[in-house]
Design a protein around this nucleic acid. Structure first.
Length: 583
DNA sequence: CTAGGGTTAG
């Protein structure tokens, strides 16, 4: 029996090489050699074998080595648990942990961080809290890996406060810890907090990496904060992460698109050397939001020319592009193609786009039949879009059906009651109008108030309907009056049918005049240079009066006005809107 | 010999 040290370390090195390269076949040959050298019962050799089999994905062999070892060490357990965690097999990892405890083996920071990782993937809150307890008892909670895993798992389970608490109490943090916290904020839609964290990291001169950048860019996208987004983009370019990471570049495309600058989104897109499916999907979705269906469709073709297969995201983006523009035939052919050509089964989002586009072009019954025969329960958004279409195309019978379903799903949504009331009014059913208006008044109390905001330099100015608190509000109202007078000469008439308060017409005119987007626009006119586009963000759908107003305002002032409402972007230029009045 | 994070949909 030869146990020459150089040969042993040679075999170990070979096995480690196999592990790194996930070379199971060669690893197996080395495994045979361990018998030849009488090393098969050696703990370190067995651990290296377990690691090699885990890394190359042969879990059964790893388990066999583990089961046959005469003396298991902590590393043996950790390797196996860690591997199950990485494979997303939380249950197996936890079961092993329990056997480990039953056998009286102590665990380490390696064990806990692996298990936490497994729980993060499954959002297993209870297990995660328990593991946190174990970590404290075993005094491994101050370990950086354990702390980072805790931040990650708490954030993924939507326990942001717990994540923060762990983060703030950590003695030592690295770039992963910081990016986990940032990602945690973004995933819980706490975009402001993510940006504040990023600034804190900058002040503390923490190094950034691609993970941090992609999450911060997503935060800017979520806030529709173009100025901050551009600043972060500049930092990214300086650090050289600019065009070589698909996560960062996809986030950048999405950020520019959601901030209203589809041109800059496209510039990032064309600059990517190796685009993946997400790069394409994000760009297509960007064009869709901006009512540029043709470009969306062209990209859909181009991505296939370079050999990428459209997936569910791709299809939801092209379908929504079609629905925004009322391209019903194109939508139908995509809907057909997705299953036949690319084996993508349509999901609720795809059906929702189809219902929307069919309804928009007046094929209301067809939309209803699609809802009836789809394999899911219809969502509120589907009934809502059907109801809206019934109003537009005048179908009282289907409107009643849609409304009935809708009120079951969303009893407190004021917009739904408004729609139905209008339909009854159009059909001169005054009793029903009165009945719906009572329901409407109750729901109006809970209705979200209209709010718009505009960024001037580095400050965001927000306006509510009939705002009185802005420092320059008097100036704004006076400028708005002048603008309205100028527009009236061109034929602007306040469309009071878009206001649903139970008040007389003159008061309605007043309320409409002071819709938040009009105030934001006026403030933009006061503050921004005369050639700069005016970008306004809004929390609700833009009303018909404001839409006409913006069209005329773009003509009178010769400005480009970009309004993002809850669904999409409107680009107003010289009296026209990119949505072709279809929204 | 063992441990952590990110992008796209109505």
């Amino acid at each position: 029996m030869c146990k020459c040290n150089t040969q042993v370390s040679y075999l170990h090195a070979l096995l480690q090489l196999c592990a790194r390269n996930r070379a199971a076949i060669q690893g197996q040959a080395c495994h045979a050699q361990t018998f030849h050298f009488g090393l098969h019962q050696d703990t370190i050799t067995s651990n290296i074998l377990i690691n090699m089999y885990c890394k190359s994905g042969v879990m059964s062999s790893a388990r066999k080595v583990f089961d046959q070892m005469p003396e298991r060490s902590l590393v043996s357990w950790n390797s196996l648990i860690g591997s199950h965690a990485q494979n997303g097999e939380a249950q197996q990892a936890l079961t092993l942990f329990r056997s480990m405890q039953r056998e009286g083996s102590l665990f380490s920071e390696f064990t806990i961080s692996s298990l936490l990782c497994a729980c993060a993937a499954k959002c297993a809150v209870f297990e995660c809290k328990q593991l946190h307890g174990f970590a404290i008892k075993a005094a491994v909670d101050s370990n950086m890996f354990v702390g980072t895993a805790l931040v990650d798992v708490y954030a993924k389970c939507a326990l942001v406060k717990d994540a923060c608490l762990v983060f703030d109490n950590m003695k030592e943090r690295n770039v992963v810890t910081w990016s986990c916290m940032a990602v945690g904020y973004v995933q819980n839609e706490l975009f402001e907090d993510a940006l504040l964290l990023f600034r804190r990291a900058q002040i503390m001169e923490v190094e950034h990496d691609q993970f941090m950048f992609s999450s911060i860019v997503s935060a800017c996208a979520g806030l529709a904060a173009l100025i901050e987004g551009k600043q972060v983009h500049a930092i990214i370019s300086k650090t050289g992460f600019g065009s070589n990471n698909v996560f960062v570049t996809s986030s950048l495309i999405d950020m520019y698109a959601k901030c209203g600058s589809v041109e800059e989104a496209y510039a990032v897109f064309t600059g990517i050397k190796e685009k993946n499916i997400v790069s394409w999907n994000t760009m297509i979705s960007g064009f869709a939001k901006h009512a540029r269906a043709l470009e969306a469709m062209i990209l859909f073709e181009k991505m296939q020319q370079i050999g990428l297969h459209p997936n569910q995201f791709t299809y939801s983006s092209v379908l929504s592009a079609c629905s925004h523009m009322g391209l019903v035939d194109e939508a139908k052919s995509y809907f057909d193609l997705m299953r036949k050509e690319h084996n993508v089964p349509p999901n609720e989002i795809h059906y929702s786009c189809m219902v929307d586009v069919l309804g928009r072009v007046g094929k209301v019954s067809e939309a209803y039949h699609l809802i009836k025969r789809m394999p899911f329960d219809a969502t509120a958004s589907m009934w809502g879009s059907l109801l809206a279409c019934c109003r537009f195309h005048g179908n009282l019978e289907l409107a009643k059906v849609a409304a009935k379903h809708l009120f079951e799903l969303e009893p407190d949504n004021a917009g739904n009651h408004i729609l139905l009331s209008n339909i009854y009014a159009a059909n001169k059913k005054w009793e029903e109008v009165a009945r719906t208006r009572t329901l409407l008044k109750e729901s109006m109390v809970k209705k979200e108030r209209g709010k718009s905001w505009i960024a001037i330099k580095d400050k965001v100015h927000a306006f509510m309907v009939g705002e009185i608190n802005h420092p320059r509000i008097a100036e704004i109202y006076s400028k708005l009056d002048n603008l309205v007078e100028e527009m009236k000469i061109l034929g602007y008439r306040v469309e009071t049918e878009h206001d649903f308060h139970d008040v007389e017409d003159s008061r309605k005119q007043q309320l409409l005049k002071h819709h938040s987007e009009k105030l934001a626009l006026t403030f933009g006119l006061l503050c921004l240079p005369s050639n700069a586009p005016i970008r306004i963000m809004k929390n609700l759908r833009i009303c018909g009066d404001c839409h006409s107003f913006m069209k005329l305002a773009s003509r009178v002032t010769q400005r480009e006005i970009i309004v993002r409402d809850i669904n999409r972007f409107h680009h107003f230029r010289n009296g026209f809107c990119s949505c072709a009045d279809f929204w």
